[in-house]
Amino acid sequence: MFKTFWMILKRDLKLALRRRSEIFTVLFFFIIVVSLFPLGVGFDEKMLQSIASGVAWIAALLASMLALERLFSSDYVDGTLEQMLLTPQPLPVLVFAKMTAHWLLTGLPLVLIAPVVGILYHLEAETVKVMMFMLLLGTPILSMVGAIGAALTLGLRGGGVLISLLILPLYIPVLVYGAGAINESMLQSGNIEPYTLLLSAFLLLSLIFSPWATAAALKISLE
């Protein structure tokens, strides 16, 4: 079982590394969205600091969403997904490997690029650290919950826009606590522990349920 997981993860990473531009597309999308906000709302330092957390998270939601459409669709189009469904290996394991690859290729780079947000929005080093930590906790949830939507909309016309309609409302808790913790950390007496615990609980729940839900959705879409 672990061998299968590793095999698919390795293949997905190899494929992505041969098309590096796709990783950077997502990354630059994130940076562009983040840097457009000050141009729209003005350069006041106080205000930028107060909106930084929300902007960073919304840009992360959109960037992760952008990459979701490709999560299963390329394997669907060339028939690989059909073959995966027909292997004796349990489908949730295969799905989990693909989710992990998706997170490594889109979620993790966002975590690493977060200091740029700190520079653009005049954040303190401490706040940037919290932002990176919360992104680290929250972005896997985005990949896992999003995978369900990607599986449900597989092969449909206008799949990309449709996914966002289905999935964005489900991202609300991640947005609320992910951004809330960053705001909290800017306060003198801030205590981010409850936020961390809540997001970890949500992460755990999605770890347990989303591979199965995604597998079920894939079976329905490929029937």
């Binding site: 190899k14 060339d78 059909e82 073959q83």
Partner: peptide, 14 residues
């Protein structure tokens, strides 16, 4: 079971 459909399951990048 071995199944082969219309699609080849071949990745151009590999």
């Amino acid at each position: 079971l071995f199944y082969l459909g219309h699609l080849n399951a071949i990745k151009g990048d590999l």
